[in-house]
């Protein structure tokens, strides 16, 4: 099976029902995408599939054949992703950092779809868990991004 990840084509051996997460981490060695729960509860494994934020732990790899997959490793190659990372650094968002790959992916997906999201949109979309409680920092960074960096 062939996968398009970060604008490169990989040929993968895993069975069709293997979660994309483990193909990315083990077969391709891209460990920036994290495993937290395996059942779509936490969001640590978020990647973009054709620009849509997707929890890779519940994404059978055969369902994304032919799609363009973006992982955190390529986040700065994306203009929106780069801005998100900058905001994350400016607001000093991460604590332990384990959830943050997923948070950054979710943020990027939202901003690509809706460059000036309202507070409600941000709340609706930024639902990944963070055990370290960085939620308010994420909110602040998102508010900044939503205003194109004007606010905050």
């Amino acid at each position: 099976m062939e996968l398009r990840i970060n604008r490169e084509t990989y040929s993968v051996q895993s069975e069709g029902d293997t979660p994309l997460l483990w193909v990315i981490r083990d077969e391709l060695g891209l460990t920036g995408t994290k495993y937290g729960c395996g059942i779509a509860q936490c969001g640590a494994c978020s990647v973009l599939v054709d620009g849509v934020v997707t929890r890779s732990c519940v994404t059978p790899v055969d369902s994304v054949e032919g799609s363009e997959i973006t992982t955190i490793e390529a986040i700065e190659a994306d203009e929106t992703g780069r801005r998100v990372v900058e905001a994350w650094v400016a607001h000093q968002v991460p604590q332990c950092g384990y959830c943050q790959s997923g948070q950054v992916m979710a943020a990027t997906a939202l901003l690509r779809e809706s460059p000036n999201p309202s507070e409600e949109e941000i709340a609706a979309v930024m639902v990944n868990l963070c055990r370290c409680g960085t939620y308010n920092a994420i909110k602040a960074a998102m508010a900044d991004l939503a205003d194109g960096g004007e606010r905050g």
Binding site: D17, A40, V58, T59, P60, S63
Partner: peptide
Amino acid sequence: YCHGADGRGRAPWI
């Protein structure tokens, strides 16, 4: 995240 925004799931797994 599993059943899809289109409700189509990821058959036959989901």
